[in-house]
Nucleic acid binder design. Sequence first.
DNA 1: TGCTATAAAGTGCATATGCACATAAATGCC
DNA 2: GGCATTTATGTGCATATGCACTTTATAGCA
Lengths: 152, 152
Amino acid sequence: MHINAGPTLDPLPCTGARLRRLTRRTTAFYEHYLRDLDLRLTQYSLLRHLGSAPQALTELADRLEMDRTTLTRGLRPLIRQAWVEESRGSDARMRLYRLTPDGVAMRERAEVRWAEAQHALEQALGREFTDQLNQRLEEALALLKPALPENN
Amino acid sequence: MHINAGPTLDPLPCTGARLRRLTRRTTAFYEHYLRDLDLRLTQYSLLRHLGSAPQALTELADRLEMDRTTLTRGLRPLIRQAWVEESRGSDARMRLYRLTPDGVAMRERAEVRWAEAQHALEQALGREFTDQLNQRLEEALALLKPALPENN
DNA sequence: TGCTATAAAGTGCATATGCACATAAATGCC
DNA sequence: GGCATTTATGTGCATATGCACTTTATAGCA
């Protein structure tokens, strides 16, 4: 039994908190479909952004707009599963990553599940609403890029 | 120097990945303003949802729509700073949490910064766009609530 | 009164996230 | 060629996130 079981939910004046909240729920939605592949949404995203051609860590981080160090560690499970292979190029500082054949196969299996999830999401939200939401998110991403003075 | 420095960014057909991406960037935006208070956005959110009246963990988790166990650990730093106090009620299973006077003071200081951040965000995105984005996020949250069969 | 079912919470595990700091290799001058 | 600077990456630390499993306490019923 709860104490102080007040009104349902606060109006949430904070856009950031609202985003985090929706992201939590949406991630759970997708991961429900990826579950028996034992794949997280982020990991699927990595598979999707990797190819058979070796790619440098920083390059990948830029494309995904993720922190470099998050990626370093996020790639490790994929390497452990032998879906991704690390190699070195002429520049001995760089780490290059590419999908293995197993990784390509896994990505294909995952894409089926992802498509199911995406479809189900569009069903739940309505196709038009989803498009508009995607639009807004994309727009916000573009507008927010130069918004932090320190990041320039 | 990068290898395979292809086109800028993929169109991102995945709504979930887009959400995660925007959330990362937006969180960084807010946390820039909270930085010298050494407060994360999530922690600010906790302070905002706590009061002087003791609240049970599960009740708080429901209100924030966060996982109970995430909350258990998320509250610890706040307790360590003595902004939040844990207590027990008549039901010996429950943990009750409330803001200490220091916690109230901290919340007030943080609200100033939060307001600056929110205002700056609305500047960056445009006021109208922000309202519409908030609207969509709220709508999506409402629509997604019953969307996972397993969650019923 | 006991026994069972349920409810509240904690813990272990595995990622996800990003900052500050450290290291190593390549670059650019002089 | 040799040294200062820049670049690519790794590591330590502290949260954030959520699932599976465990523990403890209350509730409900025979």
